[in-house]
Design a protein around this nucleic acid. Sequence first.
DNA 1: GATGAATGAGGCTTCATTCAT
DNA 2: CATGAATGAAGCCTCATTCAT
Lengths: 198, 198, 198, 198
Amino acid sequence: MRVDAARNRDRVLSAAREAVARGDTSLQLNELARRAGVGVGTVYRNFPTRQALLEALSEDRLLALLAEASAALAEADPSSGLRRLLRAVLDVLLADEAFAEVLAIRQEARSAAAGLKTRFDRAAEDLITRAREAGALRADVDAEDLRLMVCGVVHAARNNGGDTDSAAERYLAVLMAGLRPDPRSAVPRCGTRSLPPE
Amino acid sequence: MRVDAARNRDRVLSAAREAVARGDTSLQLNELARRAGVGVGTVYRNFPTRQALLEALSEDRLLALLAEASAALAEADPSSGLRRLLRAVLDVLLADEAFAEVLAIRQEARSAAAGLKTRFDRAAEDLITRAREAGALRADVDAEDLRLMVCGVVHAARNNGGDTDSAAERYLAVLMAGLRPDPRSAVPRCGTRSLPPE
Amino acid sequence: MRVDAARNRDRVLSAAREAVARGDTSLQLNELARRAGVGVGTVYRNFPTRQALLEALSEDRLLALLAEASAALAEADPSSGLRRLLRAVLDVLLADEAFAEVLAIRQEARSAAAGLKTRFDRAAEDLITRAREAGALRADVDAEDLRLMVCGVVHAARNNGGDTDSAAERYLAVLMAGLRPDPRSAVPRCGTRSLPPE
Amino acid sequence: MRVDAARNRDRVLSAAREAVARGDTSLQLNELARRAGVGVGTVYRNFPTRQALLEALSEDRLLALLAEASAALAEADPSSGLRRLLRAVLDVLLADEAFAEVLAIRQEARSAAAGLKTRFDRAAEDLITRAREAGALRADVDAEDLRLMVCGVVHAARNNGGDTDSAAERYLAVLMAGLRPDPRSAVPRCGTRSLPPE
DNA sequence: GATGAATGAGGCTTCATTCAT
DNA sequence: CATGAATGAAGCCTCATTCAT
């Protein structure tokens, strides 16, 4: 019966993913059960609350982002590593509207997703430290800030009247530019290397 | 009886403002009627939908921001004028959580608020153009982008675990830094103006 | 509309009384609404909880019992006054199964029924004191005790396999006999008036 | 495997006893299975209904009461024998809230508990007859009446706002006093036996 | 205009029972 | 025999909106 149970659980998750893809992030457990062709009780057994379902949906995403963070850390250039990670977060958020809730909202529960999020923040912190030491990142932002600002970018882009993706593109560019340490405060003298060599 | 009607409308608006100030942005018309000491029907007559109420609430805010835009345009320095406006928007959004919905969401209706928002965007556009010509602003953002990005900043700050205001402060700093034209593309030369010669 | 509202309220109460009379004391608000031919919301507006409905149902009963208590107090013989009241309580409980919940359960809410119950207990206390002073009632029971013991009598009688009423009759007789002060402790001497004159 | 089955059954019973001791008499079979560390199916096999479980739980109690009835019958004084039995019933009921359901409710099934209850009633009947003949018990109560009245006493005591045990104590005293034959009908004479001559 | 009672669809959740493994 | 996942009817309650007065 392990197999059956797993299949049902997957059906629910699939239905949820489909709903999110359709742009319906309400994730009503009853409705989901109907769509998944499964009893309400089954949904409730697996995911007692919408939040639990949301977190289950997010685990894959978080694992992918963790992998991305590792890859970013493996890059030689701290700045481009960081850029890569922010991009990756942005892409996931654009693809999965519901995921923003998990990434933005402060988790209270002791859950797998909360753990992964913490691990992700730690990985990001490593990148951040490295970038900061390389002079590529301003001093007053930490992993949580970055995470939330990317969420902010997506939030803004989604409300844009035109193309969400291209808006996100531009807003991310603004964010990344804004993350460079302030040249005025950092290297105020002309003739120094405040710019990368062309 | 015109007076009575106006007073009732005001009562509802007051109750709504109070609710928002309390952090309750659900603005349930029934509940509001109760708090305002007014029949539900009265609320519905004046504000057929939550959205209508929201927009009514926003008119003051939008007028204030319009005034702010004028003042900003009156400033000598284009860059500081722009900064001033962004700050003002941020402050209003921090003070009024519901206002973000009006500022961020694409209006459909032919409403007073929609008109004011358009006027605000136009005023901002003036500031933007001036700042861009002064080389203080990157080329790829318009008034809508700015508006939405500030909403994004507030969105991010509100989800910050610590102090919302200080987070907003930092995020706005990042945004403003990011809005400067990319020094790499600008071919900056020591002692020259920061814009490429036309 | 006051009239309409009152009629609806009464319909619900009637439906509830009918249900109780049928022996259904579950008083499910949805079901009641259906039977009363009224929207669920209407029931919930008038009686937010089953308990509230129960108490509303009880008010008549409690008023009747209060009147009975007055009448009992007006009787010359303390003992027969008390007997009369216990009988009255018993009769009401036999006629209305749901009423036992109100009479037995400790009310927490500030409700009309709670107030009436308190008033009833006070009235009973007067009877009790008088009977006690007349040597017709043992010293170790108060109004609450009497109330609960009559509930106990009904509880027992309802579970009797035979005729509930006749069982109640007998159990009440036992109770009333048990309430007389213990002749051994009270008037231990032969030749005194421990018995009423024949 | 017979051993396993028995152990499982015992686990369920233990869990049920524990629940009752905790004051939870709902005895939900699912919940019980979880607590007992046993599958739901196992619970259902052993106790198809809550009632069945209740009766299984009661067998010990009923056996104990049967023993008590024998002991009471062995006492020289009919009156004190009866008192002893009522006390014992009361104590069991106070200790086990669920047991009242078995003792009070009319059993339908052909069950072990029903049989024991009948045997108990028969044993009580012996005591009753003896007490009646000794003039210590009124004529209009039988074993079922006594059983139910003690249930009534517990019912009343549980609803008392103060200490359940002390209330039960008092109510039992009232019951026992009430069980004595009515002195008025007995034509009592000073110095004579309290029974009329046959 | 104002009132607020009425409506009832809609969403949520539990739990007794079954049954595939 | 044991397991425990699955089921879904059944109950609960809210709230946006209408409409009789």
